[in-house]
Design a protein around this nucleic acid. Structure first.
Lengths: 337, 337
DNA sequence: GTGAAAGCGCTAACAC
DNA sequence: GTGTTAGCGCTTTCAC
């Protein structure tokens, strides 16, 4: 296999010093144009590739960024990663992936075992039952920047990228109201999660604005899966006052609602309207197609990564909170005729 | 932030040499039990974490493995990655993710720009239009092991992990036949891709075994997306001899077929049966639910990663080809009543 | 059983 | 504008 080409080899061949080669390669301008050219062309010819372990050791940067998130097996997160990857690739950074399975223990263990020496920064979406976020603060204190996306740790002072949860929920509910629904239920996520709260508030405020009642029995907190969507919906159908529309915290639960309603012979749209949140591709495939708020997943990824790169490249970069708006996608599940 | 704890610090505090610390930490047995204990407990107390840039530099291993694949935004690949991640995590390896967007140019550029010095091995699923695979051979020749999964480069001598494409397809078609369908069409993937060929052959052989005709107009090659599934199906409906069942190369195309048939008022199952391949969760959500061959995506991930680790840890590990069987999931799209 | 020292590939003072 | 040198944190001969 022969050993990989190093700057030493190049230096020897060209009869210059390693530092000259290093400087030429990194475009430091106190290098003679001629020798620089020779160095670059020889490097290209020899297919020289820098050893990042060495550069990392020498100057403490690795061009690796860590991405910590609950899952990747859903549309939203896998699209976010694709966005992150796009920006990272363009800037010559690599993505190291950590999956928490939405378990805070796993998250903690990942973070604590993280070898920061191999990471220039971290992009994270916290797991839903994360009670404390001290471990993140410690990382930041040790000098590794973090940018939170989607599921943020709100008490930590760093950049955050979110979708417009409040506004999206508000818009979703307003759409239901404008479509003529008046008894609007909300099947929410687990309590205590930031974005769940925001969507709930958007829901409540939209009702308030239009002078509609928010009955306690119409608001159900549970998990994020389709199964919870189903059981929540069965519960709603038992209510003393049956709702005529359901705002689901995400598309998975909206799908669960659709399934439950179908099972009970309820005509979706006409009798009970359903709206979700995410715009999972499945929304257009299922019948009836599901009205939803499209989350800008890809942009969340690119924006977060951009921001992290800024934190990495200028320390003391001022933390920013960016909220990317969602977009109402009207489909059959909220059509009354 | 203070600098991170190094073995030097530990050595100084304990009044031993760095080499002793290094040996103790790595469980090399020529270290006094007593001093070893003291070293380990101090390391734990100080929250010592090895600098992998340094270990990488010193001994040429990084505990990073690269994963190169076309997409992550679908059920199959994201589940495979989750499997890979599970094994990597347990063995203290990190995953570095590279997404080719199914473009062979991008793939080539990724591979050529790969800094092998930061990778102990590579897990790859090639992009569909990859004409040449020399770049992979070069990587292997330079000493970095590769394991292929799913979409393999068949002419390269290294370990490969696949699902039972031939057998799965055979079983799918046999299921159709046993369900009473006789005029069975196949909407395939693009020509020239290994697993597409295998599924095609499984289809052909199952027909042959049962003495059924394989008409050329019933076999359509196109892309993998739902849209192709739709257009392929419209084309089938135009055939002189209309087929009474469709074997789709994957679930996405099966969904396309379902949509197209619904649009044309065809009763799925009764008039035309549809079977897919993958077991995307959507199969159970869509109506009618889709019969399919479940791919062992998670196991593909864990198996590939296991195998790669073996290649990394013993050079000259003998390449293995592992085929993991799929599983027939019977649902409504192939029920005739 | 332990220490000294060289070296992995690169960067960054510091000379000249 | 270029070379020399020390050093990043760790492993690994080679002595003792």
């Amino acid at each position: 296999m022969g050993h990989a080409v190093t700057i030493k080899d190049i230096a020897k061949i060209l009869n210059v010093s390693v530092s000259t080669v290093s400087r030429a390669l990194r475009d430091t301008y106190d290098v003679n144009q001629e020798t620089k050219k020779r160095i670059l062309s020889l490097a290209a010819e020899l297919n020289y590739k820098p050893n990042f372990n060495a550069t990392g050791l020498a100057q403490g940067s690795t061009h690796n960024i860590g991405v910590v998130l609950p899952f990747i097996t859903n549309y939203y997160f896998s699209t976010v990663i694709t966005g992150i990857q796009e920006v990272a690739y363009d800037n010559n950074y690599n993505i190291i992936l950590f999956i928490t399975n939405d378990s805070s223990e796993r998250e903690l263990s990942i973070i604590q075992n993280l070898s920061l020496s191999r990471l220039d920064g971290l992009l994270v979406s916290v797991s839903s039952n994360s009670d404390s976020c001290n471990h993140f603060q410690e990382i930041i204190d040790e000098g590794t920047p973090i940018v939170f996306f989607d599921r943020i740790a709100s008490n930590i002072d760093t950049s955050k990228v979110m979708q417009g949860d409040y506004k999206g929920a508000f818009e979703a509910v307003e759409h239901l109201i404008e479509s003529g629904y008046t008894k609007i239920a909300h099947i929410a996520g687990p309590k205590g999660l930031d974005f769940t709260e925001k969507r709930l508030n958007g829901y409540l405020d939209a009702l308030k604005k239009h002078g509609l009642a928010a009955r306690e029995e119409w608001i159900i907190f549970s998990g994020f899966s389709q199964e919870y969507g189903e059981t929540d919906t069965y519960q709603l159908l038992q209510c003393e006052q049956r709702p005529d529309a359901i705002f689901a915290v995400n598309d998975r639960k909206a799908i669960g609602a659709i399934v439950a309603l179908k099972n009970n012979g309820v005509i979706i749209g006409k009798e009970i309207g359903v709206i979700g949140f995410t715009d999972d591709p499945i929304c257009t495939i299922i019948s009836p197609s599901i009205t939803t708020i499209a989350e800008p997943a890809f942009e969340i990824g690119t924006t977060s990564c951009d921001l992290l790169l800024k934190h990495i490249n200028k320390k003391n970069f001022n933390p920013q909170e960016i909220i990317l708006p969602g977009k109402l996608m009207v489909r059959d599940s909220t059509r009354r005729n």
